[in-house]
């Protein structure tokens, strides 16, 4: 089955599963790019500041494209989708909304670089696995976009993998902080890998592979890195704080939305 455009959608169930998938993909990229952008000026060195903001810019660009697909399906204006929706309507994984650390980016930020490296690395590997699967999605506009996004992910992966291996192998404080961060991230990572309540329908409609396959391939992609750093394999993932795919979120998301949509909400009708 190939669905070439919104007008080709065969039935309401297909559309429901497609929308659910697109909201997850869009909201995940949107909030992780926002959290990444809060590191601007705070990253360990100037080259990292340049690299990390470039990656966040790409990722925000990907979120925009997913919101564009939602707009094309009649879900409303993409700026509204990005800025106007309440936390309870969002479908991002809880892991991706969590603050970078105590403090505020303008005032005494006590952000944890180990947490940033692990969260972004594991997320990028998971995104690569999903994008590879989406290249064969039955929804053609999504498949086309996945092919394009894949070319950019190559550089993100290279970047985070380098940081991850170097810090895990560095010994001392770096290794112990990385180990703590790995534990924290894995405790919520199931929330990234899950496709939510309509996961089975998504697979049935050939929109994306099932979450068991995706999880397996995420593990396999990490295997050589885990083995080269003597981390125990396979990583055990959990979802302790709840399932963002069901609209469950923490107050971290509320405060993030308040900040990031402040300008938008000052005049939603304005053209920027």
């Amino acid at each position: 089955m190939k669905v070439n455009s919104p007008s080709d959608i065969p039935n309401p169930d297909y559309k429901k599963a497609l929308l659910s998938l697109l909201y997850q993909l869009a909201d995940d990229d949107f909030i992780i790019a926002y959290r990444g952008s809060e590191w601007l000026g705070l990253a360990p060195h100037i080259e990292e500041d340049v690299a990390f903001s470039s990656i966040n810019q790409d990722t925000m660009g990907h979120a925009t494209m997913f919101y564009q697909l939602l707009e094309d399906l009649g879900e409303g204006d993409q700026d509204y989708l990005a800025h106007g929706r309440k936390a309870a309507e969002r479908k991002n994984a809880i892991l991706l909304e969590e603050v970078n650390g105590p403090g505020h980016y303008l005032k005494e930020p006590d952000y944890d670089w180990a947490y940033a490296v692990v969260r972004h690395y594991f997320y990028t590997v998971a995104k690569k696995v999903k994008i590879d699967s989406l290249k064969n999605s039955s929804y053609e506009p999504l498949a086309e976009m996945a092919i394009k996004m894949n070319t950019e992910l190559y550089y993100h992966l290279l970047h985070w993998k380098t940081w991850f291996i170097q810090l895990v192998n560095a010994g001392g404080e770096a290794t112990s902080r990385m180990n703590n961060a790995i534990e924290r991230v894995l405790n919520e990572f199931k929330g990234v890998l899950t496709l939510g309540p309509l996961g089975k329908e998504m697979t049935l409609m050939a929109l994306i592979e099932g979450e068991e396959n995706l999880t397996k391939r995420w593990e396999l992609a990490l295997q050589p890195v885990f083995q080269s750093t003597s981390l125990s394999f396979p990583p055990k993932v959990d979802m302790k704080k709840g399932n963002g795919r069901n609209g469950e979120h923490t107050t971290d998301l509320d405060t993030a939305l308040e900040t990031l949509s402040e300008v938008y909400n000052s005049n939603p009708a304005a053209t920027w």
């Binding site: 080259e47 340049v50 690299a51 950019e152 550089y155 970047h159």
Partner: peptide, 27 residues
């Protein structure tokens, strides 16, 4: 730096003529 001033560029240094320069990333 693999990542440069714009998404499509990297930052390099020439050890021969001692100039910094940029390269367009292969995609």
């Amino acid at each position: 730096n693999l990542f440069g001033p714009t998404a499509c560029r990297s930052i390099l240094y020439c050890k021969q003529c001692k100039n910094p320069f940029e390269a367009m990333k292969p995609i």
